[in-house]
Design a protein around this nucleic acid. Structure first.
Lengths: 349, 349
DNA sequence: TGATAAGAAGAGAACGTTCTCATAGTCCTG
DNA sequence: CAGGACTATGAGAACGTTCTCTTCTTATCA
């Protein structure tokens, strides 16, 4: 343990092995070497408990073997799933993962992108809540490769992983209509965010596309994508409209809607069907289990990581874009009404 | 944007400002300087878009301004809360946070602790699932300060943040008994993990301490602390024992129990009360909302971060330990029976 | 056997900071 | 005005690697 007062370095190892520093480095970084040379260096390294210094290596080699992942809120289950996806790619490739939550502050995102100039990280995966001009400018000037998860305007330079959450809304609405629902509510997140705007537009389009009479739908936007905001929005919606199906911008909002419905003694899915979005882990554990549009967060995460690694390998490739299709996961909360009384509607799985 | 082909360094800045590199460094790291000197350096730095290189700074200064947080699974809500707590301390202090999930592999934890010798990080916060001898040895020899969140044997050298989850179980059991429950079930996690063992022992002790007749309690251990494992364990327990209250090692396990009860057409809390543990975010969103023993993950996280930062400031302080008291949060799932028909919680199916 | 190629090992220069130490300049005091 | 204390600045050595280049050894072939 306290064999030596000073931390062993390559110099120490080389000296003990009786070889040059260059040779020691070569052996330990997997270069070619005589079996004898190889043995001597490794023995010396083991004996001293040598471990290469990350900072020195980064400085000299020009890369840190670290990636950063930036999200508004590390606590959001969507991002947690994404992080898992990223890690599944980054870890085997020998990259460490740095996590940073930006709050819902666009300025913080910009400064984060700018901080890439400090080179503490080889690349960044970012999920911006709002794609501002400042952010786009910062991305264009970024000192390291950035992959943006979310919708970016056409012609942006950054690599991009996106999903069509609007299509997801359409899938859900069509499913609700197909199962006989006729009075559609939407509880959405803030319409001035990129996902909020898309989901709102898609809902409107889907309602228009249906043959429903006027006044058979209503929308309400929560202040943000949280459960608490969802309770308020759900309350507001239900006080002026009586839906038989509610689409939600988020699983958290969906849970809030279900709660409000329960308070009004309306059963799910008997009286009202509810569909969430993101298909987060709690969705399947909820009672009733929540139908939800999966946006494949984990897959988007791993895709983003892969894109980033490939960009690091080939910096001159043209910007690329990957698109992931949303997938509707039907569970208990949106089962059709007729069957509600028939079979144990609480246990279709 | 492409003002210069090569990245600006301190040398570039110093040259442009017409001062020495040392002076430039001094100004930018907050040393003393003439107003004139200060101005010239800052102007030059701004003009060039200079940003200090993290690797070089780390190498020279001997610290990385990075902390690592290691958990079995980044997806677990408990750890997410803890991460938030850590970040709330680390970020304002200028530290970046590295997240690493070890899987449930003790060997991975050991190698992680050993990897501190590579000095890619100034300190580590770790939540070990199992405290093995190898881990304790690794901790004792760790190359950087480590704070362990969880129970450590007496006399360990590492700084330690703990909570008494056994006490939490006792609180919950006492609450259940006080509200008239008489047939107690326990659905626990694996008994060979440190939290699993403690919760099991505490449950047994609490049952013994009660005046309940023999045969009025039953226990079942899930293969791990997941929802899926919980379903199996709950099924096993309920097939041989009919409880009127179930204590769970985990919120996820509690959700599984509630689901199984619903399948058996038993209402919560009308027929059976359920209490979880960890008080994760989904607990309040569930229907019925889940009573749970909070182990104050966020607080433990921030406490661990604070301990770590203080350790970095004073490496020679004796090892310290912080203990956080569990707190029972009573929600719908454990309301006393008489009121079952009264409020909206009678229809949770 | 000598010329040439190929391969192994070493010397030493980076990488971009911070920080110690020396020097030069300024101000105060007697 | 001399001497000392103090401050501002600069020169240059680290920090621990990697990697290029050079040198030396050894094998191969005409």
């Amino acid at each position: 343990m306290s064999r030596s007062a000073t931390r062993p370095t390559l110099v120490t190892v080389a000296r003990l092995a009786g070889v040059s520093v260059a040779s020691a480095s070569r052996v330990l970084t997997g270069g070619t070497a005589t079996p004898e040379m190889d043995r001597r260096v490794r023995v010396a390294a083991r004996q001293l408990g040598y471990a290469p210094d990350a900072a020195a290596r980064s400085l000299r080699a020009g890369r840190t073997q670290q990636l950063a992942f930036a999200v508004a809120d590390v606590g959001n289950p969507t991002y947690v799933a994404m992080m898992r996806g990223i890690e599944s790619i980054a870890k085997p490739a020998g990259y460490r993962l740095l996590v940073r939550s930006t709050g819902s502050d666009p300025a913080d995102e910009v400064s984060l992108v700018q901080s890439l100039a400090r080179r503490y990280v080889d690349g960044l995966i970012i999920c911006p809540i709002r794609v501002t001009h400042e952010l786009l400018r910062a991305l264009a000037a970024a000192a390291a490769p950035v992959v943006v998860v979310g919708n970016l305007p056409e012609g942006s330079l950054a690599d991009n992983v996106r999903t069509d959450s609007g299509l997801g809304v359409r899938l859900a609405v069509e499913h609700l209509l197909a199962t006989g629902r006729r009075a559609l509510g939407l509880v959405n997140g803030p319409p001035d965010t990129s996902p909020g705007a898309r989901r709102l537009a898609a809902f409107d389009a889907a309602v228009r596309a249906s043959a429903l009479p006027a006044g058979s739908s209503a929308r309400e936007c929560a202040g943000d994508f949280t459960y608490r905001a969802g309770l308020a929005a759900a309350g507001a919606l239900l006080s002026r409209f009586r839906p038989d199906a509610v689409m939600c911008g988020n699983d958290l909002l969906a849970f809030a809607v279900i709660r409000k419905l329960a308070e009004l003694r309306l059963s799910v899915p008997g009286d009202v069907a509810v569909v969430g979005m993101d298909d987060t882990e709690p969705a399947q554990m909820h009672l009733p289990s929540l139908s939800s549009v999966s946006l494949e967060s984990a897959i988007r995460g791993s895709l983003a990581a892969r894109l980033l690694l490939e960009r690091l390998a080939g910096p001159d490739l043209p910007p690329r874009r990957e698109t992931v299709l949303p997938r509707l996961v039907i569970r208990e909360s949106s089962q059709p009404r007729p069957q509600a009384a028939a079979a144990a509607d609480g246990r279709p799985q």
